[in-house]
């Protein structure tokens, strides 16, 4: 029983955050500073999510991320870009 309560509490909290963010944003104005903020937000969240991981992966992490980003910029192909990054890290970890 305590297990079920713990899981239910975590599930409810997480769902409230997900739906709450969307519903709150609906209440915000769609003009001016709020719009500027909301339009910039996706990029800044995503780059904040990934940046510490790249740094933690060290020098080769930076190299791999650079070529991943370059490929994504040139081709727009997410899958191929991901393979390039992973490929560089696999080569480095197993052969260097």
């Amino acid at each position: 029983m305590p297990a079920l309560i713990t899981i239910a509490a975590a599930a409810i909290i997480t769902y409230i955050l997900r739906i709450g963010g969307l519903l709150l944003s609906d209440k915000l104005p769609r003009t001016g500073n709020v719009k500027t903020f909301m339009d910039t937000l996706p990029g800044t969240i995503l780059i904040s999510l990934v940046a510490p991981g790249i740094i933690a992966a060290g020098f080769w992490g930076l190299i791999a991320a650079f070529f991943t980003g370059l490929c994504a910029y040139k081709t727009g192909n997410v899958f191929m870009s991901m393979l390039i990054g992973i490929g560089i890290i696999i080569l480095q970890r197993n052969f260097l």
Binding site: G43, L46, I47, L49, V50, G53, I54, A57, G61, A64, A65, T68, G69, C71, A72, V78, S81, M82, I84, G85, I86, I89
Partner: peptide, 11 residues
């Protein structure tokens, strides 16, 4: 690193 690579490309 796969997660880092895919999120980098998406960024």
């Amino acid at each position: 690193f796969a997660f880092i690579a895919v999120f980098t490309a998406l960024t």
